[in-house]
Computed example of a mutant assay.
Amino acid sequence: MTGQSTLETVKVEGAQLLDQIKRLIHEGNVRRIIVKQDERVIAEFPLTFGVIGVVIAPVLAAVGAITALLADCTIEIERSGEAPAGETPGPTEEG
């Protein structure tokens, strides 16, 4: 691990939100997921490697509730290390 993180932005519709979050959680290199509508932060989920199994259920329950309320939203994904092959990383967010 290089200590760097990348920030990626993905636009989704409410119905796709839950599937997209599940996919991101299973990737394993995601440190934080932020769900936004326009520029307003709706939810933020920090994902720590050691507690992934513990946080999956509450995260998915919260995303399910959010999905019912949102039509279009943006997911910001903070990844540890390098972006997966084939994906272009977003701007690097510095602390």
Results as ranks from 00 to 15, higher is better:
L17I: 07
G95M: 08
G90P: 15
T92P: 15
G95D: 04
A65G: 05
N29C: 06
A65E: 14
I56K: 12
I25A: 00
A71Q: 10
T9R: 15
K22V: 11
Q4R: 15
E8C: 09
I56D: 01
Q20M: 10
K22M: 08
K11S: 14
V30H: 00
G64T: 08
L70D: 10
L18F: 07
I56E: 15
I21K: 00
K11W: 11
A61S: 04
I52K: 14
S5D: 02
V12M: 05
F45R: 00
S80G: 13
E8F: 08
L7K: 15
I25W: 00
I21D: 01
I66Y: 01
H26N: 10
L69D: 13
S80R: 07
H26W: 06
G95R: 15
T74N: 10
A15D: 02
L60M: 13
I33S: 05
N29T: 07
I77P: 04
I34K: 15
L47S: 01
K22C: 07
V55Q: 09
I21P: 00
D38P: 03
E78K: 09
A43N: 13
V30D: 00
R79T: 01
E8T: 09
V30M: 01
G95C: 08
R40G: 04
L69E: 14
G3S: 09
Q16M: 12
G3A: 07
P46G: 07
E39M: 03
Q37Y: 12
I34S: 14
L69V: 08
I77M: 05
R23M: 10
E93C: 04
G50N: 05
I52D: 13
A57F: 03
R23P: 02
A71G: 02
E13V: 04
D19K: 03
V41A: 10
D38V: 08
S80N: 12
V51A: 14
G53Q: 14
G95K: 14
V12I: 08
G81R: 11
R31D: 02
I56A: 00
L70N: 05
Q16P: 06
A15I: 03
A57Q: 06
C73Y: 02
V30Y: 02
D19G: 09
E93N: 04
L47V: 14
A43C: 06
R40V: 10
R79K: 07
L17P: 09
E13C: 09
I75H: 01
L17N: 01
V59P: 01
V51L: 15
I75R: 02
L70W: 03
V12E: 09
A71V: 03
A68P: 11
I33W: 01
E27H: 15
T2R: 13
Q4W: 08
V59C: 05
A71N: 08
L24S: 06
I77K: 00
I75E: 00
L69K: 13
L18M: 11
Q16I: 01
T92W: 05
I52S: 10
A83C: 11
Q16R: 15
F45D: 00
V10E: 13
P89C: 09
V12W: 06
L7A: 11
K36A: 09
A62F: 00
R79N: 02
Q4T: 02
I77T: 08
